[in-house]
Amino acid sequence: MSEVSASLKNLTISDDKSLLPESKFSVEQQALAAQWTTLVSTIQQDASFIPKLNDCLRHFTYVLGNQPTNVDALLFKAVFPVVESSIADEKTVADQRHIIRWIDLIQNTLIKLADAEKLKIPFNAELPVEVQQ
């Protein structure tokens, strides 16, 4: 485990005022939150976890919609090391573009990482345009 991912465990939310509180979750958001909280424990064994999360972040900025929640923080800590280890690969970058975008948002807002610890985002990578299926 890299130093960054080791230190991730101790990270706390830097800006919890911006979080949508659980008490305000819609029924749909409650269901999604429960689903992701259960799924995150399988991230090491379940190869479909990353594509599922990427699909979810394709149409929404945060995991549960347009506002940050504690589910973003929870998933961020689990997903960061996985994405960090594969970001050098061009194909991975294209396939995980939505997760990478979301990581960059979270690491600069909800969970502020020091610059050296941040995932390096390939802002200038030319990706094939995605088409709505």
Binding site: T61, R97, R101, D104, L105, F123, L127
Partner: peptide
Amino acid sequence: SHLNFRSYIVGY
């Protein structure tokens, strides 16, 4: 293409 890795147009 600009929004591939960005949530807002500029910054966060």
